[in-house]
Design a protein around this nucleic acid. Structure first.
Lengths: 150, 150
DNA sequence: ATGCCTGCAAAAACTTTGCAGAATT
DNA sequence: AATTCTGCAAAGTTTTTGCAGGCAT
Protein backbone atom coordinates (compact mmCIF):
# COMPACT_ATOMS: atom_id res chain seq x y z
CA UNK A 1 0.00 0.00 0.00
CA UNK A 2 1.58 3.23 -1.05
CA UNK A 3 -1.51 5.43 -1.01
CA UNK A 4 -1.48 5.87 2.71
CA UNK A 5 -2.35 9.51 2.31
CA UNK A 6 -4.97 9.26 -0.35
CA UNK A 7 -7.96 8.91 1.91
CA UNK A 8 -6.76 10.60 5.04
CA UNK A 9 -8.55 13.63 3.76
CA UNK A 10 -12.28 13.23 3.30
CA UNK A 11 -12.61 16.65 1.74
CA UNK A 12 -14.43 18.09 4.74
CA UNK A 13 -13.16 21.40 5.99
CA UNK A 14 -12.70 19.90 9.39
CA UNK A 15 -10.25 17.28 8.28
CA UNK A 16 -8.25 19.72 6.22
CA UNK A 17 -8.15 22.21 9.02
CA UNK A 18 -6.88 19.58 11.43
CA UNK A 19 -4.28 18.47 8.99
CA UNK A 20 -2.93 21.96 8.48
CA UNK A 21 -2.96 22.69 12.15
CA UNK A 22 -1.14 19.45 12.86
CA UNK A 23 1.54 20.58 10.44
CA UNK A 24 1.89 23.85 12.28
CA UNK A 25 0.21 25.97 9.62
CA UNK A 26 -2.71 28.27 10.19
CA UNK A 27 -5.72 26.99 8.29
CA UNK A 28 -6.40 30.05 6.22
CA UNK A 29 -8.84 30.06 3.33
CA UNK A 30 -6.06 29.93 0.76
CA UNK A 31 -4.17 27.13 2.43
CA UNK A 32 -7.34 25.11 2.81
CA UNK A 33 -8.07 25.64 -0.85
CA UNK A 34 -4.62 24.43 -1.85
CA UNK A 35 -4.91 21.49 0.54
CA UNK A 36 -8.31 20.55 -0.88
CA UNK A 37 -6.92 20.61 -4.36
CA UNK A 38 -3.72 18.73 -3.63
CA UNK A 39 -4.05 16.60 -0.56
CA UNK A 40 -7.46 15.06 -1.21
CA UNK A 41 -7.99 12.28 -3.70
CA UNK A 42 -5.27 10.62 -5.72
CA UNK A 43 -1.72 11.90 -5.74
CA UNK A 44 -0.83 14.51 -8.30
CA UNK A 45 2.07 16.52 -9.68
CA UNK A 46 1.71 20.24 -10.07
CA UNK A 47 3.71 23.35 -10.65
CA UNK A 48 2.78 26.79 -9.37
CA UNK A 49 1.11 28.13 -12.49
CA UNK A 50 -0.89 24.97 -13.13
CA UNK A 51 -2.19 25.02 -9.56
CA UNK A 52 -2.94 28.72 -9.86
CA UNK A 53 -5.02 28.12 -12.97
CA UNK A 54 -6.87 25.20 -11.44
CA UNK A 55 -7.82 27.07 -8.31
CA UNK A 56 -8.65 30.27 -10.13
CA UNK A 57 -10.72 28.32 -12.64
CA UNK A 58 -12.74 26.86 -9.82
CA UNK A 59 -13.52 30.30 -8.51
CA UNK A 60 -10.88 30.21 -5.79
CA UNK A 61 -9.40 33.54 -4.80
CA UNK A 62 -5.64 33.28 -4.46
CA UNK A 63 -2.63 35.09 -5.86
CA UNK A 64 0.32 33.50 -7.61
CA UNK A 65 2.64 34.72 -4.87
CA UNK A 66 0.53 32.96 -2.29
CA UNK A 67 0.60 29.81 -4.38
CA UNK A 68 4.38 29.90 -4.29
CA UNK A 69 4.45 30.67 -0.60
CA UNK A 70 1.96 27.93 0.16
CA UNK A 71 3.75 25.32 -1.92
CA UNK A 72 7.01 26.17 -0.20
CA UNK A 73 5.35 26.10 3.20
CA UNK A 74 3.76 22.75 2.45
CA UNK A 75 7.09 21.35 1.38
CA UNK A 76 8.81 22.66 4.47
CA UNK A 77 6.36 20.90 6.78
CA UNK A 78 6.44 17.72 4.74
CA UNK A 79 3.05 17.86 3.06
CA UNK A 80 4.59 18.01 -0.39
CA UNK A 81 7.76 16.92 -2.07
CA UNK A 82 9.70 19.06 -4.52
CA UNK A 83 10.74 17.37 -7.74
CA UNK A 84 13.58 18.42 -9.95
CA UNK A 85 12.47 18.38 -13.54
CA UNK A 86 14.67 19.51 -16.41
CA UNK A 87 15.43 22.80 -14.72
CA UNK A 88 12.61 24.86 -16.13
CA UNK A 89 10.08 24.99 -13.38
CA UNK A 90 9.65 23.47 -9.96
CA UNK A 91 7.12 20.68 -9.61
CA UNK A 92 5.59 19.41 -6.44
CA UNK A 93 4.37 15.91 -5.73
CA UNK A 94 1.67 15.10 -3.21
CA UNK A 95 3.30 11.74 -2.68
CA UNK A 96 6.16 12.46 -0.33
CA UNK A 97 7.33 8.88 -0.31
CA UNK A 98 10.35 7.60 -2.15
CA UNK A 99 9.54 6.85 -5.77
CA UNK A 100 10.52 7.57 -9.36
CA UNK A 101 8.99 9.86 -11.94
CA UNK A 102 8.31 9.77 -15.61
CA UNK A 103 8.59 13.09 -17.39
CA UNK A 104 7.39 13.77 -20.92
CA UNK A 105 8.81 17.11 -22.04
CA UNK A 106 6.74 17.23 -25.21
CA UNK A 107 3.55 16.93 -23.19
CA UNK A 108 4.79 18.85 -20.16
CA UNK A 109 3.60 16.00 -18.04
CA UNK A 110 4.94 14.27 -14.94
CA UNK A 111 3.64 11.06 -13.42
CA UNK A 112 4.75 8.32 -11.13
CA UNK A 113 6.86 5.44 -12.26
CA UNK A 114 5.31 2.35 -10.68
CA UNK A 115 7.85 0.26 -8.88
CA UNK A 116 6.79 -2.64 -11.09
CA UNK A 117 8.58 -0.88 -13.92
CA UNK A 118 11.85 -1.27 -12.08
CA UNK A 119 13.73 -4.46 -12.01
CA UNK A 120 15.35 -3.91 -8.66
CA UNK A 121 15.32 -1.03 -6.27
CA UNK A 122 18.63 0.37 -5.18
CA UNK A 123 19.72 2.67 -2.43
CA UNK A 124 22.88 4.58 -3.17
CA UNK A 125 25.44 5.15 -0.49
CA UNK A 126 26.35 8.64 0.66
CA UNK A 127 29.95 9.82 0.69
CA UNK A 128 31.37 9.93 4.21
CA UNK A 129 30.43 13.01 6.15
CA UNK A 130 27.13 13.30 4.35
CA UNK A 131 23.78 11.66 4.53
CA UNK A 132 21.18 11.22 1.83
CA UNK A 133 18.41 13.74 2.15
CA UNK A 134 16.43 12.49 -0.80
CA UNK A 135 16.86 10.87 -4.17
CA UNK A 136 15.28 12.33 -7.26
CA UNK A 137 14.86 9.98 -10.16
CA UNK A 138 13.34 11.43 -13.29
CA UNK A 139 12.95 9.27 -16.36
CA UNK A 140 12.66 11.44 -19.43
CA UNK A 141 10.34 9.94 -22.03
CA UNK A 142 9.76 10.54 -25.69
CA UNK A 143 6.90 9.35 -27.82
CA UNK A 144 8.07 6.15 -29.47
CA UNK A 145 7.57 6.35 -33.20
CA UNK A 146 9.09 2.95 -33.68
CA UNK A 147 6.28 0.53 -34.32
CA UNK A 148 8.41 -2.47 -33.45
CA UNK A 149 7.61 -4.17 -30.21
CA UNK A 150 10.63 -5.32 -28.26
CA UNK B 1 36.82 2.67 -18.67
CA UNK B 2 34.38 5.50 -18.44
CA UNK B 3 36.68 8.38 -19.20
CA UNK B 4 36.70 7.74 -22.89
CA UNK B 5 36.43 11.43 -23.49
CA UNK B 6 38.90 12.68 -20.97
CA UNK B 7 41.92 12.62 -23.18
CA UNK B 8 40.40 12.95 -26.58
CA UNK B 9 41.20 16.59 -26.28
CA UNK B 10 44.85 17.43 -25.90
CA UNK B 11 44.10 21.09 -25.42
CA UNK B 12 45.49 22.01 -28.79
CA UNK B 13 43.39 24.29 -30.87
CA UNK B 14 43.51 21.81 -33.66
CA UNK B 15 41.87 19.04 -31.72
CA UNK B 16 39.18 21.30 -30.37
CA UNK B 17 38.49 22.70 -33.77
CA UNK B 18 38.13 19.24 -35.21
CA UNK B 19 35.86 18.17 -32.45
CA UNK B 20 33.54 21.12 -32.92
CA UNK B 21 33.49 20.70 -36.63
CA UNK B 22 32.72 17.02 -36.27
CA UNK B 23 29.74 17.99 -34.17
CA UNK B 24 28.53 20.32 -36.86
CA UNK B 25 29.43 23.50 -35.01
CA UNK B 26 31.54 26.28 -36.38
CA UNK B 27 34.75 26.55 -34.36
CA UNK B 28 34.39 30.15 -33.28
CA UNK B 29 36.60 31.72 -30.66
CA UNK B 30 33.91 31.53 -28.00
CA UNK B 31 32.98 27.94 -28.70
CA UNK B 32 36.62 26.92 -28.63
CA UNK B 33 37.01 28.69 -25.32
CA UNK B 34 34.04 26.86 -23.85
CA UNK B 35 35.26 23.59 -25.27
CA UNK B 36 38.74 24.13 -23.84
CA UNK B 37 37.25 24.79 -20.44
CA UNK B 38 34.79 21.93 -20.44
CA UNK B 39 35.84 19.20 -22.79
CA UNK B 40 39.51 18.98 -21.88
CA UNK B 41 40.70 17.34 -18.73
CA UNK B 42 38.52 15.59 -16.19
CA UNK B 43 34.76 15.74 -16.36
CA UNK B 44 33.03 18.60 -14.62
CA UNK B 45 29.64 19.99 -13.74
CA UNK B 46 28.89 23.61 -14.45
CA UNK B 47 26.06 26.04 -14.70
CA UNK B 48 25.99 29.06 -16.96
CA UNK B 49 27.06 31.68 -14.45
CA UNK B 50 29.87 29.59 -13.03
CA UNK B 51 31.24 28.96 -16.50
CA UNK B 52 30.87 32.63 -17.33
CA UNK B 53 32.91 33.60 -14.29
CA UNK B 54 35.58 31.03 -14.99
CA UNK B 55 36.07 32.10 -18.58
CA UNK B 56 35.85 35.80 -17.81
CA UNK B 57 38.29 35.35 -14.95
CA UNK B 58 40.78 33.76 -17.31
CA UNK B 59 40.56 36.75 -19.60
CA UNK B 60 38.16 35.13 -22.03
CA UNK B 61 35.83 37.43 -23.88
CA UNK B 62 32.34 36.01 -23.96
CA UNK B 63 28.88 37.19 -23.00
CA UNK B 64 26.46 35.39 -20.70
CA UNK B 65 24.00 35.04 -23.55
CA UNK B 66 26.62 33.29 -25.63
CA UNK B 67 27.40 31.01 -22.70
CA UNK B 68 23.77 29.96 -22.64
CA UNK B 69 23.61 29.57 -26.38
CA UNK B 70 26.82 27.57 -26.45
CA UNK B 71 25.80 25.27 -23.61
CA UNK B 72 22.49 24.61 -25.34
CA UNK B 73 24.23 24.05 -28.65
CA UNK B 74 26.71 21.66 -27.05
CA UNK B 75 23.89 19.74 -25.45
CA UNK B 76 21.97 19.52 -28.69
CA UNK B 77 24.90 17.97 -30.51
CA UNK B 78 25.68 15.63 -27.65
CA UNK B 79 28.83 17.22 -26.26
CA UNK B 80 27.17 17.93 -22.92
CA UNK B 81 24.39 16.51 -20.85
CA UNK B 82 21.83 18.62 -19.05
CA UNK B 83 21.19 17.75 -15.41
CA UNK B 84 18.04 18.60 -13.54
CA UNK B 85 18.91 19.92 -10.12
CA UNK B 86 16.31 21.06 -7.65
CA UNK B 87 14.74 23.42 -10.14
CA UNK B 88 16.89 26.44 -9.50
CA UNK B 89 19.39 26.45 -12.25
CA UNK B 90 20.38 24.21 -15.09
CA UNK B 91 23.62 22.30 -14.73
CA UNK B 92 25.59 20.67 -17.50
CA UNK B 93 27.78 17.63 -17.23
CA UNK B 94 30.70 16.94 -19.52
CA UNK B 95 30.14 13.25 -18.99
CA UNK B 96 27.29 12.41 -21.32
CA UNK B 97 27.20 8.79 -20.23
CA UNK B 98 24.60 7.28 -17.97
CA UNK B 99 25.42 7.90 -14.34
CA UNK B 100 24.09 9.34 -11.08
CA UNK B 101 24.83 12.61 -9.34
CA UNK B 102 25.32 13.78 -5.85
CA UNK B 103 24.02 17.26 -5.10
CA UNK B 104 24.83 19.26 -1.96
CA UNK B 105 22.47 22.23 -1.80
CA UNK B 106 24.29 23.83 1.11
CA UNK B 107 27.50 23.87 -0.87
CA UNK B 108 25.90 24.39 -4.26
CA UNK B 109 27.95 21.51 -5.53
CA UNK B 110 27.29 18.66 -7.95
CA UNK B 111 29.52 15.67 -8.51
CA UNK B 112 29.36 12.17 -9.84
CA UNK B 113 28.13 9.27 -7.83
CA UNK B 114 30.56 6.44 -8.50
CA UNK B 115 28.78 3.27 -9.48
CA UNK B 116 30.51 1.58 -6.57
CA UNK B 117 28.18 3.52 -4.30
CA UNK B 118 25.22 1.69 -5.79
CA UNK B 119 24.32 -1.78 -4.80
CA UNK B 120 22.72 -2.70 -8.06
CA UNK B 121 22.02 -0.75 -11.19
CA UNK B 122 18.51 -0.76 -12.54
CA UNK B 123 16.97 0.24 -15.79
CA UNK B 124 13.36 1.27 -15.55
CA UNK B 125 10.87 0.28 -18.22
CA UNK B 126 9.09 2.88 -20.28
CA UNK B 127 5.30 2.92 -20.51
CA UNK B 128 4.06 1.60 -23.84
CA UNK B 129 4.19 4.11 -26.63
CA UNK B 130 7.17 5.84 -25.14
CA UNK B 131 10.85 5.26 -24.98
CA UNK B 132 13.34 6.36 -22.38
CA UNK B 133 15.29 9.36 -23.54
CA UNK B 134 17.42 9.64 -20.43
CA UNK B 135 17.33 9.02 -16.72
CA UNK B 136 18.29 11.71 -14.25
CA UNK B 137 19.24 10.52 -10.82
CA UNK B 138 20.15 13.20 -8.32
CA UNK B 139 21.00 12.23 -4.78
CA UNK B 140 20.53 15.19 -2.47
CA UNK B 141 23.05 15.24 0.34
CA UNK B 142 23.28 17.00 3.65
CA UNK B 143 26.26 17.35 5.91
CA UNK B 144 25.99 14.56 8.45
CA UNK B 145 26.29 15.95 11.93
CA UNK B 146 25.89 12.51 13.42
CA UNK B 147 29.32 11.37 14.49
CA UNK B 148 28.34 7.73 14.61
CA UNK B 149 29.94 5.58 11.99
CA UNK B 150 27.62 2.93 10.60
C1' DA C 1 30.99 37.49 -50.28
C1' DT C 2 27.76 34.70 -47.79
C1' DG C 3 26.00 33.01 -43.87
C1' DC C 4 26.43 31.82 -39.23
C1' DC C 5 27.80 33.60 -34.64
C1' DT C 6 28.47 37.07 -30.93
C1' DG C 7 27.44 40.83 -28.01
C1' DC C 8 24.48 43.75 -25.93
C1' DA C 9 20.23 44.85 -24.26
C1' DA C 10 15.64 43.98 -23.87
C1' DA C 11 12.24 40.77 -22.78
C1' DA C 12 10.43 36.59 -21.09
C1' DA C 13 9.66 33.16 -17.60
C1' DC C 14 9.87 31.88 -13.00
C1' DT C 15 10.20 32.93 -8.11
C1' DT C 16 10.80 35.76 -3.98
C1' DT C 17 10.05 39.82 -1.14
C1' DG C 18 8.01 44.21 1.12
C1' DC C 19 4.31 46.41 2.88
C1' DA C 20 -0.44 47.57 3.97
C1' DG C 21 -4.65 45.47 4.90
C1' DA C 22 -7.21 41.26 6.26
C1' DA C 23 -7.93 36.99 8.49
C1' DT C 24 -6.87 33.85 12.39
C1' DT C 25 -6.20 32.89 17.18
C1' DA D 1 -5.74 42.75 20.38
C1' DA D 2 -1.71 40.42 18.68
C1' DT D 3 0.14 37.75 15.28
C1' DT D 4 0.35 35.67 11.05
C1' DC D 5 -1.10 35.52 6.29
C1' DT D 6 -2.60 37.41 1.76
C1' DG D 7 -2.53 40.30 -2.17
C1' DC D 8 -0.46 43.19 -5.15
C1' DA D 9 3.36 44.95 -7.21
C1' DA D 10 8.03 45.40 -7.50
C1' DA D 11 12.33 43.29 -7.68
C1' DG D 12 15.44 39.29 -8.23
C1' DT D 13 17.07 35.21 -10.97
C1' DT D 14 17.64 32.59 -14.68
C1' DT D 15 17.21 32.05 -19.56
C1' DT D 16 15.90 33.40 -24.29
C1' DT D 17 15.54 36.49 -28.21
C1' DG D 18 16.34 40.43 -31.73
C1' DC D 19 19.29 42.94 -34.26
C1' DA D 20 23.55 45.11 -35.84
C1' DG D 21 28.19 44.09 -36.47
C1' DG D 22 31.94 40.49 -36.79
C1' DC D 23 34.02 36.16 -37.85
C1' DA D 24 34.31 31.64 -40.35
C1' DT D 25 34.08 29.44 -44.67
Amino acid sequence: MTDSKTDICDNSNDTITKRLRAAGLRPTVQRRTVAENLLCGPHQHVDASKLFETISGNGGRISLATIYNTLNDFERVGLLRRIAISGERTWFDTDTGDHRHYYIPDEDRVFDCPSSALVIDVTPRAPSGYRIEKVDVVIHLEADTTKTSD
